[in-house]
Structure formats: structure tokens, C-alpha cells
């Protein structure tokens, strides 16, 4: 990022390509529409690009990136709720192609993934963000705390409650 601050566009492109997949993945699980998730991911990179000459290495780049993404996601969800949209009604697994005929295991795996995604979508935003940052991005509790602007103890509690909720929802009989 220090190279980016010095005006090295190639350094920015390297960061962009490295962080685009995890960022899009995170936002796609946070906001209702896939297209909107991509727009928000672009907005995150645009803000970083425009602020590159003011960057101060006080925290890891990923912390900065996901902090911006989290704030944009919360704003988006707030707008969605005002428009009475339900979040994440189209789980990612629903958009995958059907498994090959006879692939019983894959079908079972797809069912489990669908159930998990539906349960994830119903978690409160901060619980969902904390769990996703831990499980999918591999961030530690202290770093998640920086992203969410919370304490490490709060993050521990958010992740505990998120997993408890997921397990409880997965235990519910399918409707």
C-alpha cells in the first residue's frame, strides 16, 4: 500500500486483484443483491484509490478494506430495510448449477450449503459480519474488532451467538 501511496498504479492493481475475490464474497453474503455487492466492492476500491496519497499504515490493509466494506454494507442494508426488502433471498447455492446426475454426495452437500446460507442470511448483520470475517477471511478477533469498531470481548460474544443461532436454525425441521 505504501507503493500505491507513492503513485505506483501496478501496486494498486496487485492489491485490487488479490482482494477482489474475498471482498466480493464478503459483500455478496452481506447485502441482498449480487450486482449491488459488486457495485459496493467497486466503491470500496474507488475510495481507497482516491485516498491513496493520504494512507497511513496504522492498521493492516485488510482491516481498512473490510472496515469500509462493512460500513457500506450496513448503509446498504439500512436502505434495503427502508424499502422493505428482505435480505439475501437468493442464496448463492441456489444460483449454482445442478450437480451431475447420480452425484448423491454433491446433492447432499448442496442441500447443507443451501441451509447454511439461508441461516447465515438471517443472522443479525454484526453477527454475520463477525463470523464471515473469522471463517471466510481468517481474521483474528482483534482485527475483526477493528473492522466492526468493537471490543475483542464483543467480537467473541458476536461469534458465539452467531454459531449458536446457526446451529439452532439448522436443527429446525425443514418446512
Amino acid at each position: 500500500m505504501l507503493q500505491v501511496r507513492g503513485g505506483d498504479r501496478r501496486a494498486f492493481e496487485a492489491l485490487f486483484r488479490r482482494y477482489t475475490p474475498p471482498l466480493v464474497n464478503f459483500l455478496a453474503r452481506m447485502v441482498p443483491e449480487r450486482a449491488r455487492a459488486e457495485e459496493l466492492a467497486q466503491e470500496v476500491f474507488l475510495r481507497i484509490y482516491q485516498a491513496r496519497d493520504r494512507y497511513e499504515p496504522r492498521a493492516r490493509f485488510s482491516t481498512w478494506l473490510f472496515s469500509i466494506a462493512h460500513n457500506l454494507a450496513l448503509n446498504e442494508l439500512s436502505r434495503s430495510y427502508r424499502k422493505r426488502e428482505r435480505p439475501l433471498e437468493d442464496p448463492v447455492v441456489e444460483r449454482m448449477q445442478d450437480p451431475q446426475p447420480g452425484a448423491e454426495q454433491r446433492l447432499e452437500g448442496k442441500r447443507a450449503a443451501r441451509a447454511i446460507e439461508a441461516a447465515l442470511a438471517r443472522l443479525p448483520e454484526r453477527q454475520r459480519a463477525a463470523l464471515l470475517l473469522r471463517v471466510e477471511q481468517g481474521l483474528g478477533y482483534a482485527e475483526i474488532a477493528d473492522v466492526l469498531d468493537a471490543s475483542s470481548a464483543s467480537v467473541k460474544s458476536l461469534i458465539h451467538r452467531a454459531r449458536e443461532s446457526l446451529l439452532a436454525r439448522l436443527d429446525e425441521p425443514e418446512s
Binding site: P21, V24, V93, M96, A113, V135, E136
Partner: peptide, 16 residues
Amino acid sequence: HVLRSLPPVQPSPQFE
């Protein structure tokens, strides 16, 4: 294990 095996959402080809 199931959470970690969720298929990641990939950016569209025109993203960059």
C-alpha cells in the same frame, strides 16, 4: 467445516 466449504461468490468477468 460446512461454513468453510461454502462455494465462494466470484466477481463477474467485467468487474475490473
